[in-house]
Deep mutational scan, measured.
Amino acid sequence: QIFVKTLTGKTITLEVEPSDTIENVKAKIQDKEGIPPDQQRLIFAGKQLEDGRTLSDYNIQKESTLHLVL
């Protein structure tokens, strides 16, 4: 699982696999929060994550925290 922290300070927990794409993660966030993926920007280690890449591409491991910017 990974954590996604929103600007409001809320933390969302997501069940993911390293092979999941960023697009996939955004879809999971939409399921939980109702935020359309095209409004979501995910930041990890100061980098904006691209939809077509996977979590493992960015070396995002379990218990990692991503930041969600709208």
Rank of each mutant, 00 (worst) to 15 (best):
Q1G: 05
Q1R: 13
F3A: 04
F3Q: 05
F3E: 04
F3R: 07
V4S: 00
V4D: 01
V4A: 03
V4F: 03
T6R: 06
L7T: 13
L7Q: 14
T8Y: 12
K10D: 08
T11L: 14
T11D: 04
T11V: 14
I12G: 00
I12M: 06
I12H: 03
I12E: 01
L14Q: 01
E17C: 13
E17D: 13
P18G: 10
D20N: 08
D20F: 07
T21Y: 08
T21C: 05
T21I: 05
I22M: 04
I22V: 10
E23Q: 13
E23G: 13
E23L: 12
E23W: 15
N24Q: 13
V25C: 05
V25W: 01
V25L: 11
A27L: 13
K28Q: 11
K28G: 03
I29K: 00
Q30G: 07
Q30R: 14
D31H: 14
D31G: 09
D31C: 14
D31S: 11
K32L: 11
K32H: 09
E33G: 05
E33H: 09
E33R: 05
G34F: 04
G34P: 03
I35Q: 03
I35D: 02
P36S: 08
P36R: 08
P36T: 06
P36F: 06
P37N: 07
P37T: 14
Q39L: 10
Q39C: 14
Q40N: 03
Q40R: 02
R41K: 10
R41I: 15
R41F: 12
R41V: 15
R41T: 14
L42I: 07
L42E: 00
L42K: 00
I43F: 15
I43N: 06
I43H: 12
F44I: 04
F44R: 03
F44H: 08
A45I: 06
G46F: 04
K47L: 13
K47Y: 10
K47W: 07
Q48C: 15
Q48F: 14
L49E: 00
L49T: 03
L49W: 01
L49M: 06
L49F: 02
L49H: 00
E50L: 09
D51S: 08
G52Y: 10
R53H: 15
R53T: 06
R53G: 06
T54N: 05
T54L: 10
T54A: 06
T54H: 06
L55C: 05
L55E: 00
L55M: 06
S56Y: 10
S56A: 13
S56V: 08
D57Y: 12
Y58D: 02
Y58T: 02
N59D: 09
N59V: 04
I60Y: 02
I60E: 01
I60A: 02
I60G: 01
I60W: 03
I60L: 04
Q61P: 13
Q61I: 13
Q61R: 08
Q61N: 10
Q61T: 14
K62N: 15
K62L: 15
K62I: 13
K62D: 15
K62R: 09
E63Q: 10
S64C: 09
S64V: 07
L66I: 12
L66Y: 02
L66H: 01
L66K: 01
H67M: 12
H67N: 08
H67C: 15
L68E: 01
L68S: 01
V69G: 06
L70G: 08
